[in-house]
């Protein structure tokens, strides 16, 4: 998928959690939101993008994405 779009969406999520005073809670908030609402394909793509540098991701989004646990690729 269009990675810029995924980056914007992840940043939007991180922006919401930025206000959370407890940093660990904020990071978990981003991770949990991505896990609950994003299709694994999108999560996998974003994590791969982060691993290649993740340009454009805001710091909290980076931390949340880094902690993503990805499910195995679904069979056909």
């Amino acid at each position: 998928m269009n990675i810029e779009r995924l980056v914007t969406m992840a940043n939007d999520i991180a922006t919401y959690f930025t206000v959370e005073p407890d940093h660990a809670v904020a990071v978990e908030g981003v991770r949990d939101h991505l896990t609950k609402f994003w299709d694994p394909v999108m999560r996998r793509q974003l994590k791969a993008y982060l691993e290649q540098g993740g340009e454009g991701l805001v710091p909290l989004a980076r931390e949340g994405v880094e902690k993503l646990i990805l499910p195995p690729i679904a069979g056909n």
Binding site: M1, N2, K36, F37, W38, D39, P40, M42, P71, A74
Partner: peptide, 20 residues
């Protein structure tokens, strides 16, 4: 049944454009 969320409508559009 699958235990992972699927695509939302705007995600479907993005996935259609990338051919998946």
């Amino acid at each position: 049944l699958l235990g992972e969320p699927g695509l939302r409508i705007p995600n479907m559009f993005e996935a259609a454009l990338d051919g998946s």
